[in-house]
């Protein structure tokens, strides 16, 4: 909000190219001859075992989300059939009869209490829903944040001040509460009183509202970087030699901030996934029966006393997902910018 606060939370911008070109991590110096900064970063990343493992884990999650219908076909079940009720796998309290939440060769992760859907399918489709929504929010926020930050940093002066105050103002909204309070109003904009809600309204509102309050952080970072970059000699040289603004922004500024953008996007995605899951958990996000990661926690929290096994599948999956993304973000940063300290 205030200038001291901003100063303390924004890290010093470090141009990506400079360190990569001057100092490598390598023992043999000829390894770096004739390689672009991107190739050097890739070399460094390949040496980072944690980074590779995390990239694989993240890749698996994304693959599972994309290939959910395929997996469903191979596995032979879907996320909507009430297997527990149809096959008599639930007792009269709606709890799985078999131990450990009804895990069996038929249902690898057991069956859901009450409705009796297959947990494995539920989880895969739930990840798909949450991941797609979070991905949309991330893409929108990154694009907006970068454009906003670039405008602020490049134009500077009065524009910078006014835009800066606006993003400060947006930051002072309590985002989770705002979402909860405002989503019924937003939904009623699309759905008339008493009408059936079309399927796209909830995801659309989730994406829009989360994006509206989610782009400011990256915008500030980009602004800070651009502000320091535009005083550098190479930008000045480009300006003196008559380069257009478009050229300066696209060829001189953007290549130097894209590592920040990449790292921040990797760190933003899990934040939006957990936020979306949190809203669904509270009952204001995705509604049942659509499978959703957060809704699984809602079910889990209702039945934890009698069927705690159910809770572990979405829970552990989410911990692995977030850990992998955070570590991957760290590795990408280290690869792109070897000077930063862990």
């Amino acid at each position: 909000m205030s200038s001291p606060t901003t100063a303390a939370t924004e890290p010093e911008p470090v141009p990506a190219e400079a360190p990569a070109a001057t100092e490598g991590t390598g023992k043999s110096s000829d390894e770096h001859v004739g390689r672009s900064p991107g190739q050097l970063a890739w070399l460094r990343f390949r040496r980072d075992q944690t980074g590779i493992v995390c990239a694989v884990v993240v890749g698996i999650f994304i693959l599972v989300a994309i290939a959910a219908p395929l997996i469903s076909k191979i596995y032979g079940k879907n996320a909507y059939n009430l297997y527990g009720q149809d096959d008599g796998l639930l007792n009269s309290y709606g709890l799985p009869i078999a131990p450990n939440g009804g895990i069996s060769a038929q249902h690898w992760f057991g069956i859901e209490p009450q409705l009796g859907r297959d947990v494995f399918m539920l989880l895969i489709y739930g990840i798909r829903t949450s991941l797609l929504i979070a991905l949309a929010v991330t893409v929108l926020s990154v694009v907006t944040g970068v454009l906003y930050g670039l405008t602020q940093g490049y134009l500077s002066g009065r524009t910078d001040y006014l835009l800066g105050r606006f993003s400060d103002f947006m930051l002072s909204f309590p985002s989770q509460l705002f979402f909860i309070a405002f989503s019924p109003v937003a939904i009623s904009l699309f759905v008339g009183v008493g009408d059936q809600e079309p399927w796209w309204v909830r995801p659309f509102v989730l994406i829009t509202l989360q994006f509206l309050l989610g782009w400011m952080g990256l915008g500030r970072l980009v602004r800070a970087q651009v502000l320091s970059l535009r005083e550098r000699e190479f930008v000045e040289a480009a300006r003196i030699s008559g380069a257009s603004s478009r050229r300066i922004i696209l060829k001189e500024l953007l290549p130097n901030i894209w590592s920040t953008i990449l790292v921040q996007s990797t760190l933003m995605l899990p934040v939006f996934v957990t936020a979306e899951a949190g809203l669904s958990f509270l009952g204001v996000g995705i509604l049942p029966p659509t499978p959703d990661w957060g809704l699984m926690f809602q079910t889990g929290a209702t039945y934890y006393q009698n069927d705690i096994t159910f809770m572990f599948f979405p829970g552990i999956a989410m911990v692995i997902f977030v850990v992998a993304f955070n570590l991957l973000g760290d590795s990408v940063r280290d690869a792109l910018d070897p000077k930063t300290l862990r």
């Binding site: 958990f281 957060g294 926690f297 809602q298 889990g300 929290a301 705690i308 989410m318």
Partner: peptide
């Protein structure tokens, strides 16, 4: 800290209730 940074209240909350309270 890394794991703590990655868990969610809606996951560990019910687990903590089940373990420490129940």
């Amino acid at each position: 800290s890394l794991v703590g940074n990655s868990v969610q209240i809606y996951f560990i909350g019910p687990l903590a209730i089940a373990l420490f309270a129940d």
